[in-house]
Nucleic acid binder design. Sequence first.
DNA 1: ATGTATAGTGATAATCGTTGTCAAATAGAG
DNA 2: CTCTATTTGACAACGATTATCACTATACAT
Lengths: 134, 134
Amino acid sequence: MTDAKPRQTKQRAAIVDALGRGGFRSAQDWHDVLRHDGAAIGLATVYRALQALAESGDVDAVVTDSGETLYRLCEAGEVHHHHLRCRACGAAEDVDIPTFEAWATSVAAQHGYSRIEHTVELTGVCHQCATEGA
Amino acid sequence: MTDAKPRQTKQRAAIVDALGRGGFRSAQDWHDVLRHDGAAIGLATVYRALQALAESGDVDAVVTDSGETLYRLCEAGEVHHHHLRCRACGAAEDVDIPTFEAWATSVAAQHGYSRIEHTVELTGVCHQCATEGA
DNA sequence: ATGTATAGTGATAATCGTTGTCAAATAGAG
DNA sequence: CTCTATTTGACAACGATTATCACTATACAT
Ligand SMILES: [Mn+2]
Ligand SMILES: [Mn+2]
Ligand SMILES: [Zn+2]
Ligand SMILES: [Zn+2]
């Protein structure tokens, strides 16, 4: 049932290493970062690794309004949480919403809905980007 | 500034009419509905109309995890609100989250973020779909 | 250490929702 | 009705993601 642990490859090491510098980036952006660092790695491999890491909970994934998926290494362990992300630079803070989970369950029940899932994402412009940008 | 009012065409009338039956559907699904009703209408026209209606606030648009955009005619006027949507059939309830907006602004300010936007969507399985489906 | 089975890689093609193009159709003002 | 700017729609193009599949390289057994 629990899938066999993945093999250790230099590509995956390089990806995790790159993720270490933080920030939400698309798979293609992470691939650019890796190539820029001199790593020889295929785009498909980056996609697969990021998806696997997201599934295992080691990275967070968010979908932008334009449909792109952004990934970042998450330090907040396996606890459920949400993000406040800068639309300009990819920086993000982990946040949690005290009463939201309880509220969601209650509202869903009132309407007869089950198997509830929720999406809560905050975006804005961080202080640094607000100072620099137009 | 305010764009000139769009012309009245049979295509747009047909689209608004179809939307009248409710539910969140993708542009392609709405197109299928229209064709099924015997309307001769192009897919590109459906995309354009739905986007225009979404921009003017007459329809709600949500983006699924897979990146598809779903549209539905919204009865909740121009007041800001969110949705509890059935993943199986497209049914949806308008909901509002009492203290969320204030909380979001406050958290953003604490982290030095400005120009805040937020996404809150609830999904589940409605009572009817839960009864019928597996 | 060496061989082997097997999971991982990556260049490339395919997918699919969406957007762009542009000639033909038409709403609506005069 | 006439005229013209807007709208339409068949079709091509786009862009992020996923599938292919021949080729490696890892982990394990010998
Ligand atoms: Mn996180
Ligand atoms: Mn609504
Ligand atoms: Zn920033
Ligand atoms: Zn349902």
